[in-house]
Design a binder for these strands. Sequence first.
DNA 1: TAGATTGTTAATCGATTAACAATC
DNA 2: TAGATTGTTAATCGATTAACAATC
Lengths: 233, 233
Amino acid sequence: MRAVAPNGLTTPSSFPNAMIPTKNLPTPSIRRLPGYLRLLKAARARGERVTSCTRIAEELGQQSVQVRKDLSVTGVSGRPKVGYSIDELIDAIQDFLGWNRKTNAFLVGAGNLGAAIINYQGFAEHGLNIVGVFDSNPALFGSSIKGHKVMPVDDMLGCAKMLNGYDIMVEMGVITAPASAAQTVANQLVEVGVRAIWNYAPAVLELPDYVLCENVKLSESFALLTSQMKNRA
Amino acid sequence: MRAVAPNGLTTPSSFPNAMIPTKNLPTPSIRRLPGYLRLLKAARARGERVTSCTRIAEELGQQSVQVRKDLSVTGVSGRPKVGYSIDELIDAIQDFLGWNRKTNAFLVGAGNLGAAIINYQGFAEHGLNIVGVFDSNPALFGSSIKGHKVMPVDDMLGCAKMLNGYDIMVEMGVITAPASAAQTVANQLVEVGVRAIWNYAPAVLELPDYVLCENVKLSESFALLTSQMKNRA
DNA sequence: TAGATTGTTAATCGATTAACAATC
DNA sequence: TAGATTGTTAATCGATTAACAATC
């Protein structure tokens, strides 16, 4: 019997997952999956049971073959002439993205952006589980965001140890602090033992190899828009 | 005499800019420009006058040839052995991106995310000039965000007309409203006459061809991070 | 001069799209 | 059966990288 790893390689099923060579899955495909997921959930909410790549592509303005290829990374298979089971697709995408399990996270920077992320229901639905909110501004200490008391950033390590005592591991750090503080915060998060950092600060972070990092670059998107406006003016 | 358009095509200088065929400039390059700009401004603040692609590439962990190609879209030229003038590069990038002029914008959705964008100094420095903040929640009407009174979303067109009377055109709409309201808001912004929409709501917007749209997809970035975490676990 | 750098052309790599067989 | 769809292989397209001449 053989198992097909998410990277498409066929490996004996006795092969522990951890030993499957971490393949470079096509980043663009992964980026598009959340869009499909949103659409599929909407369709399910309307009571639909199956859908086709043609329909998804139409709604999103893409090529159906691209949708098919993207969906294939999750391992689901559809039925010719019929299409895909919506339930199955939703499960497969969430599974592939790691969105059907909770991801414990510390968030550092309790300003408007931090509050937006904490309050946004969407991320919670994708498993983001904030277990600590920190800031360096004493004026914010003790205030509450969605039930989370804002704590001094210097208490971060202490809080993590406390949580570890209850077998709660902090896997992710969300940085919504200003760029000037980002590296310091990142260092503290590494101390805490996070495996990944979701960084909203416009700064390049120095991190150990074993810590994943994803930089949200809001200026990129603004740049694309204004440069196009200029070209059209 | 000849002018070199930002698209790299050489055209007679008598050629009106508007008639230069809008070329598809490499999107990845444009996306990387804000990163270079940030670095260059930091270098200038340290008192440096020139820099090289090698140094920029090193600081960002890219290939120097890529930096060179990216910078070339702005039209600047460096001097072999010396490098580029930092001042010149900063000017050229800002010029290319349309960041050295103000872009008047309405922002709709005065929640945490909206407030974050209004308060973030970076966007203001890139020319984002908020001239109206709107929401549908009466509880927010009259409250202030960085000096902007939050107004009822239904007053949007009226406000725009008033501004137009003073020759202030609203060029951009920023949507920080929930996905469920996004299309309605977009329609209202089109009525107002915006040429571009910066959409933070996870929704596909139907817009006339002449309105540019840039969707900020925060889930994309979360998806990349969690899927990698899963692959490593 | 030698060496660091720019600027450009060619080669490589990866992603998208086209074409088409298989299937229900 | 005919037609819509999946799944896959091949062709195309675009972006990155390698190679190298030009320059100061």
